[in-house]
């Protein structure tokens, strides 16, 4: 796995989007173009990207819903 995919996998794990094992599987399935597109979004973000839990409420008592 090349270094760019390793970086992306690390970012996905740190965001809580995947476990390490699933991040490895996921980035392994991505094309080089999708890898670069995702990295550009995640590395270019000026504000923190925060994952919420649940559906209508988030785990932090902040807002969140799927609808």
């Amino acid at each position: 796995m090349d270094i760019r995919k390793k970086i992306l996998g690390g970012l996905l794990v740190s965001m809580g989007l995947y476990s390490i094992a699933n991040a490895v599987r996921y980035v392994g399935s991505l094309s080089a173009r999708d890898t670069e597109n995702l990295l550009s979004v995640m590395e270019g973000s000026q504000t923190p990207i925060q994952l919420c839990g649940g559906s209508v409420l988030s785990s932090r008592g902040e807002l969140g819903k799927t609808a």
Binding site: Y18, S40, G53, T66
Partner: peptide
């Protein structure tokens, strides 16, 4: 994770916090 691409368009509108949530089968 590919849906994260929308963040780029939203950040172009202003410096707004963006939170993410996984779609649940509900």
């Amino acid at each position: 994770p590919l849906d994260l691409a929308l963040a780029k368009e939203l950040h172009a509108l202003g410096d707004m916090p963006i939170r993410f949530q996984k779609v649940l089968p509900i």
